[in-house]
Design a protein around this nucleic acid. Structure first.
Length: 421
RNA sequence: GGGGAGAUUCCCGAGUGGUCAAAGGGAACUGACUGUAAAUCUGUCGGCGAAGCCUUCGGAGGUUCAAAUCCUCCUCUCCCCA
């Protein structure tokens, strides 16, 4: 039996947890202190949980806000439980917007899980992370157990959720399943015996409900750390892959850099606070210069360095300047590296089809529209022709530009490529 | 169980027999101007290699030269009464 603990004093742990991006709200501060004390006296790590959607396994820097916090817990010696909601993902979507999602197969779930691991271990320590799936317990529950679970909460309390209430008021549909969903989710924490759960502020209702359910099952309710939500690059909605406004943590350095540069000015502070890891005083200092352009450069630099390294950040910065300030084209070698080299087999090919093949448009019609709008250029020369006059003879590789930031290297055979390298 | 209202393109929402690939707004994309910011202005916003054609208005049938629009059945949603 160990007589002394490997854990830091509680006060120190709490102050470490408040470093960096502070949780918007900690629900049950007292509980947190107690749990930390207990963990110390029993020399037992706390179980810190966060749930993730199994169907969209792409983490972006919005998620990373809380993942860094999980990391802090690991540094303090606690265990992170990374929960993948494969069961809930298979059942459907509670947001009310979409129809039931296509059911994921076992294989898809496994693939997505691996994708998560690859990304999340960029930040977390694999040794101290437990990856779990909620189908483990939900997959086998019978209806009696399930009904018991549902008996612990009421319709009225469910309607307290803002989203539900609004829809109720607006005479919009709310399915029973949507009411059940938070309960199912809540049971995850019971099954995992979670001590602490992290989540975005949008999860507040569900997470608070979880505490009730844990109590109903005789467990000590988990402490909640509600983390701020990061807005997407458009600055209006929350960051989300499906809205197309996300910066993925596995995006290329150039992409991350560029996307940071494109955020609206009034988002700069928020991004600094949530993603840079820079101290508040220093942030104030940077922003007091009143030079948003430079502030963004510095931010982009910091973030790329964080997920890659300083060297890559410098390259990305250079790339950015040459591309957008000097309007240079990227070099063929860079395009090849970015997987933007596209082989066209025919000697003569219709330009819209080339654009579609390259991925610059979804249909020939869309490609045609882009051409008409003057959005397409070949080796820096804007394409002016229309309709039938768009056959292109591919004699040498050329750089196709579609819109502001899509570049493709079009070539016909591998030899041409070799010559370029 | 009874009565009423409704389902339109990514979202909201107009359209009640041809002039409808379907108003308007939002989102998105694009061009100009810029700092790949914002604001503003232009243009686009189902598919097919111009024309012309094809597919689309919850689903399946039907009436009609012609259907988002009329009829029948079905599915789903909301409200009121019980």
């Amino acid at each position: 039996m160990q007589t002394h603990t490997k854990f830091l004093p509680v006060k120190e742990q709490i102050s470490r947890l408040k470093d960096g991006v502070a949780p918007v709200e900690i629900i049950d501060m007292e509980g947190l202190t107690q749990k930390l004390e207990q963990s110390r006296s029993e020399n037992r790590p706390l179980r810190v949980k966060q749930g993730f959607d199994a169907s969209a396994p792409d983490l972006h820097i919005g998620h990373s806000v809380s993942i860094w916090k999980l990391k802090t817990f690991q540094e303090l010696g606690h265990k992170v439980v990374f929960l993948i909601g494969d069961f809930t993902g298979m059942v459907g979507d509670p947001s009310g917007k979409s129809k039931t999602r296509p059911r994921l197969t076992r294989e898809e779930v496994e693939v997505n899980a691996q994708t998560y691991r690859d990304q999340v271990y960029k930040i977390l320590d694999p040794e101290m992370t437990e990856v779990r799936f909620n189908s483990e317990w939900h997959g086998q529950r019978n209806i009696y157990e399930f009904l018991e679970l549902t008996s612990h909460y009421t319709i009225r309390r469910m309607l307290e959720r803002d989203d539900f209430w609004k829809r109720f008021q607006a005479e919009k549909p709310i399915s029973i399943m949507e009411f059940l969903y938070p309960l199912i989710q809540a049971y995850d924490s019971v099954a995992l015996k979670a001590d602490i759960e992290l989540g975005g502020t949008d999860q507040k209702f569900n997470l608070v409900l979880t505490r009730h359910i844990q109590r109903a099952y005789g467990q000590d309710p988990q402490v909640l750390l509600l983390m701020p939500l990061l807005c997407g690059t458009g600055g209006k909605e929350k960051m989300s892959k499906s809205l197309g406004n996300a910066i993925g943590i596995t995006d290329s350095p150039d992409d991350i850099y560029g996307k940071i540069m494109s955020i609206p000015d009034d988002m700069i502070r928020e991004y600094y606070l949530m993603c840079s890891g820079i101290e508040n005083r220093e942030i104030d200092n940077i922003l007091s210069q009143n030079d948003p352009y430079q502030a963004k450069h510095k931010l982009a630099n910091t973030i790329v360095s964080k997920y890659y390294d300083e060297n890559k950040a410098r390259c990305a910065a250079q790339q950015f300047l040459s591309l957008f300030k000097n309007k240079d084209l990227p070099s063929p070698a860079e395009l090849i590296e970015d997987n933007a080299a596209v082989r066209i087999d025919n000697e003569v090919e219709w330009l819209p089809r080339i654009i579609v093949t390259a991925g610059g448009a979804k249909s020939n019609a869309e490609a045609n529209r882009l051409i008409k709008a003057g959005a397409v250029s070949i080796d820096c020369v804007k394409v002016q022709a229309e309709g039938k006059n768009l056959d292109i003879r591919i004699e040498a590789p050329f750089i196709l530009k579609v819109g502001k930031r899509r570049f493709y290297l079009i070539y016909r055979n591998e030899e041409q490529l070799k010559q370029l390298c």
